[in-house]
Design a protein around this nucleic acid. Structure first.
Length: 426
DNA sequence: CTAGGGTTAG
């Protein structure tokens, strides 16, 4: 936002700031993805003795949700109860989302079931909460429940329902829901619904049908529509279509590193190392840099950050020893590393050994070393989790009999007893 | 001034 800084300056000039003035400031931070600042200013407002209203709470909960800051979100919830805003639908909707995005599905549901008079947003917030946690069956169940209560779904509801179908391979059902958008609910499907359908068909392996679906769109396909198809090409190793699709994406959004990474990895996987290098060079030419992968873990009220091959931590030696131990145990279980797993790595032909030092594994080792035996290991990551890490997390949950929860950029993975809640679809 | 998302310019 061009005028954001001006707005902040203006705020500083206002002598008599009431709650609305503060809300506008905090919302400005949220709209510019500055969630930490948003939260900080909320607390500054509190210290200045201003009582928050419904709007302040909805906004600050949105920030806590985006930061996955459960501790803070819970503190806000306490204040909401104290100040008596527990009937406001915006606040309740934000609470559901906050708990879901902070990893606590049970708390999200507790808020949801306490609501007397649901609207489409509270239903959708809970449906989306299930979707985020990979509970596709509950998504469909709640959606049907919502319809039976006579609530009209929204565009957003359909995004969740179609994604759930996609993640569980329910092609027919997804198509039926998609058609119902127009036929039954008298709405026009938007590009986001087409993106879901392309994903649905593509994941099921129907690449040509997915492409035809795009061609049938009554509007210009957005990058996420093509992105869904590119993901499918990667999954099925269709380099020919993948190239074409990636070309379009490079034109539409030359600054999105994800597309380059996907194509480069597809090339590597089909043994075309030279072409993979070419894609990496193109990325450099276009001035794009991949965001480095990075993982966080909270131990005793402290946040520890790891990057791949990180040796900066004071107990680095123990961490690496722990990883070696993990590697031995995992291999004893018969796991053979598949280097083509390097989904979001850009390293040139990364060797197997390199995979073992991805940031989330370092965080895992640190968690295993420092957290009490009965507490879940909660890790946050800034990118999509890679296939190697995903497999190792599953095995580690079984080997160490630990619950491991990883929140990647898109969703939660809850690993327990050798399985992941995402059902290996992510 | 506020909530749900795979939105977001012909």
């Amino acid at each position: 936002m061009k005028f954001f800084d001006e707005g902040v300056k203006l705020f500083q000039c206002v002598g008599d700031r009431d709650v609305v003035t503060w809300n506008v400031l905090v919302m400005g931070f949220v709209q510019n993805d500055k969630f930490e600042e948003a939260c900080n200013y909320f607390w500054v407002m509190r210290r200045e003795g201003i009582l928050p209203d419904e709007a302040s709470f909805s906004t600050v909960l949105h920030s806590s949700a985006s930061l996955a800051a459960l501790h803070q979100g819970t503190a806000i919830h306490d204040q909401i109860i104290k100040l008596g805003y527990v009937k406001n639908m915006c606040v309740l909707g934000s609470l559901i989302t906050m708990y879901a995005k902070c990893g606590s599905l049970v708390d999200a549901y507790r808020v949801f079931e306490g609501i007397e008079d649901h609207n489409v947003i509270s239903w959708t917030a809970m449906i989306s909460a299930y979707q985020l946690h990979g509970c596709a069956n509950q998504v469909i169940e709640l959606f049907e429940h919502m319809l039976s209560e006579g609530i009209e779904p929204s565009h957003v509801t359909f995004v969740c329902v179609l994604s759930a179908c996609s993640h569980t391979g329910r092609v027919e059902e997804g198509l039926a829901h998609f058609n119902s958008i127009k036929k039954i609910h008298d709405m026009n499907p938007g590009p986001e619904h087409y993106a879901c359908m392309v994903d649905l068909l593509g994941r099921a392996g129907w690449l040509d049908e997915a492409k035809r679906f795009i061609e049938s769109m009554p509007m210009k396909p957005t990058p996420s529509v093509w992105g869904a198809l590119l993901g499918a090409c990667r999954k099925y190793g269709n380099l020919k279509m993948g190239r074409e699709v990636a070309e379009r994406l490079f034109e539409m959004e030359p600054y999105n590193p994800g597309n380059y990474v996907l194509l480069a990895n597809m090339c590597t996987r089909s043994g075309r190392l030279e072409e993979a290098n070419k894609v990496r060079r193109l990325m450099g030419v276009n001035g794009v840099r991949k965001e480095p992968g990075c993982s966080w873990i909270d131990v005793k009220n402290m946040t520890f950050v790891f990057t791949a091959h990180d040796r900066s931590h004071s107990s680095s030696d123990e961490i690496y020893k722990m990883l070696e131990k993990l590697e031995k145990l995992v291999k004893k279980k018969g796991y053979v590393a598949e280097t083509e797993f390097v989904t979001n790595s850009l390293e040139e032909n990364e060797e197997e050994q390199g995979l073992w030092y991805h940031s989330e594994k370092l965080a895992l080792a640190f968690g295993l070393l420092t957290l009490p035996i009965d507490s879940p290991i909660r890790i946050k990551k800034n990118l999509r989790t890679c296939g190697h890490c995903h497999t190792v997390m599953k095995l580690a949950s079984k080997i160490f009999d630990r619950e491991i929860i990883v929140r990647d950029i898109n969703r939660f993975h809850r690993f327990a007893d050798g399985f992941c809640s995402c059902g290996d679809y992510w």
